Amino acid sequence: MYRVLFVCLGNICRSPMAEAVFRERVARAGLSGAIEIDSAGTGDWHLGKPPHEGTRRILDAQGISYEGMLARGVRPEDGERFDLLVAMDESNVKAIREALGAKTRAEVVRFLSFVPDARLTDVPDPYYTGDFEETYALISEASDRLLAHLLETGKVTAAAR
């Protein structure tokens, strides 16, 4: 089982959107049994709350479930439990490294690093920009590319279904 944790600031907009979209892509590929997916935030303002209304609205429009998702914070054990920590922006990368320290075994990457031709390096936070459509488009493409990367590198295999 390969484990992926998506991380943003409050865990109500970007990372739950990424969790839901990536989970949908993984299920469509028939790999739900091979990849565990979760999300968390580096801040504690929204702990226990469901995804933001804007995130829910766009996921509903796409027919993607977010059922049961509630905001949680990054935990020290996440660095050992997960194989890949996917940060939405550079400030999340720094916060993850500060929270987990040097003892993490997980790889920490920015989500848009899987989209080398993207015009941006960070997924903009729609909590501040209000542009959930742009965030969805970036997360959607990065999710496709992340899944392709995991298959191409052999971190996940089609045989693991």
Rank of each mutant, 00 (worst) to 15 (best):
K49W: 00
I37S: 08
E98A: 12
E134A: 02
C13M: 08
L31H: 03
Q62W: 03
L120P: 04
E80G: 15
F22L: 08
T104K: 15
H52W: 05
G33M: 04
S32I: 15
G10I: 05
Y66V: 09
L5N: 01
V109N: 09
A29S: 05
M17K: 03
E67N: 13
T157D: 10
V86C: 13
A118V: 00
Y128L: 09
F114V: 06
L84N: 13
L151C: 11
G79R: 09
E53L: 02
S91T: 14
L70I: 05
A158V: 14
S143P: 10
F132P: 01
L146P: 05
R57S: 14
T135F: 00
A34R: 10
D144T: 11
A102T: 15
I139Y: 00
G33S: 12
R56M: 14
S39Y: 03
S32K: 11
L31M: 09
R110Q: 11
G130K: 02
I35G: 07
E134G: 01
R56V: 05
T135M: 12
R28D: 10
C8F: 03
P76W: 10
E24C: 12
F82G: 09
D117N: 14
A142R: 00
K155S: 01
A61D: 12
S91H: 10
A20V: 09
D83Q: 13
K49C: 00
V123P: 03
R28F: 01
A27H: 01
G48A: 07
D38S: 14
R119M: 06
A29W: 00
G48N: 11
T55G: 03
S65W: 00
A27V: 08
L5E: 05
D83C: 10
R57Q: 12
K94F: 01
I58V: 15
Y136T: 05
G101T: 14
D122Q: 10
K103H: 14
L47Y: 06
G30Y: 01
K94V: 08
A137V: 07
Y136M: 07
T157M: 11
L70P: 04
